[in-house]
């Protein structure tokens, strides 16, 4: 992706896109904070209002309370400006997020490095796979995709379109066929073709559906028959607009299929991102990437400091 002409130009383009997306996310949050403060004494009432602002950003009650407590400890009773409050929050948030910022590393020399994508319905798994395929391919890796969502109507066709767009082979079977068997065959083909990366799609499933989660566990068991160390990454795709249920999702998928990292999608709407902070606070999982728009370049590596500062509307 980086060896094109006009790289600087393009890079600014992405940053702008990311910033534009997040600016929309953060404008409400920042507006809220500015509304609470210009310069005034930090007292109980203003702390409570601040906490509300964080909650509105989906940070969740626990994380919000923790941030507020830390602010209160440092600044209670003092005169503070809006800028100071924002900087203080951004620092706290970046600290929570920093350990989570780890991109998906697939250039491991394994042939293939197997990535399994899981998540609830509509979170953006298939789209994320398409975008990842493009990015890996642009980096010079040979990529294959497996259309493992054999349940949803036209999910296979959707991935095949991504295959055409990116020039990536897609291993598919008829709708309704066994997802585990498809994964098995796909690994065979990827091995034979000497592919660097194999991205396996799965059908969306709600985390409280025991029988569907069991089916996912079976896909992994079958994958391990081909390669005991696989899947090398098991990525949970989370919809950034989801509220507190995101915790249940991470917990359930982590227990059932050993999720190794997260991708957060749809972070380009209005109030967003707060859920990432809460998740990073509670689960020690890397956030590989965030989706901030519809094109392939809009799947961005996760940058903790930038994210935190953007969330707080700081330059």
């Amino acid at each position: 992706m980086s060896d094109e002409l006009g790289e600087g130009e393009e890079r600014r383009g992405w940053f702008r896109r990311l910033k534009d997306g997040l600016a929309k996310s953060s404008s409400k949050l920042v507006g809220g904070i500015s509304g609470v403060f210009t310069t005034k004494r930090l007292d109980e009432a203003s702390l409570e209002e601040l906490e509300d602002v964080l909650i509105t950003a989906d940070l969740g009650i626990e994380t919000s309370a923790r941030l507020i407590a830390s602010l209160s400890k440092a600044k209670f009773g003092k005169d503070v400006t809006d800028e100071e409050v924002r900087t203080s929050f951004a620092e706290e948030i970046a600290e929570i997020l920093r350990p989570a910022a780890r991109p998906l590393d697939v250039a491991t020399g394994r042939k293939p490095h197997i990535v399994l994508m899981v998540g609830v319905n509509g979170s953006g798994k298939t789209t994320t796979i398409g975008k990842l395929a493009k990015q890996f391919k642009d980096r010079g890796l040979s990529v294959m995709m497996a259309a493992g969502d054999t349940f949803r109507a036209a999910a296979i066709e959707q991935l095949q379109v991504w295959g055409e767009r990116t020039g990536t082979p897609v291993i598919a079977k008829a709708q309704g066929s066994d997802a585990a068997a498809l994964a098995f065959d796909a690994i065979n083909e990827a091995k034979a073709a000497g592919a660097d990366v194999l991205l396996i799609d799965t059908a969306g499933r709600l985390q409280n559906r025991a029988e569907l989660m069991e089916e996912l566990a079976k896909v992994i068991r079958v994958i391990r028959k081909q390669d005991e160390t696989a899947p090398h990454d098991c990525v949970l795709v989370l919809d950034g607009t989801v509220g507190q249920n995101a915790h249940n999702q991470v917990k359930a998928f982590k227990e059932m299929v050993a999720v190794s990292g997260l991708v957060i999608t749809k972070l380009d709407g209005s109030t967003r991102g707060g859920v990432v902070v809460a998740l990073a606070d509670q689960f020690e999982l890397p956030v590989h990437a965030v989706g901030v728009g519809e094109s392939a370049e809009d799947l961005q590596p996760f940058d903790a400091d930038r994210f935190a500062r953007d969330l707080m509307g700081l330059e």
Binding site: D58, T241, V242, G243, S270, R272
Partner: peptide, 8 residues
């Protein structure tokens, strides 16, 4: 989506 957060 019933799972939507504050953005609903």
């Amino acid at each position: 989506d019933a799972m939507t957060g504050q953005d609903a």
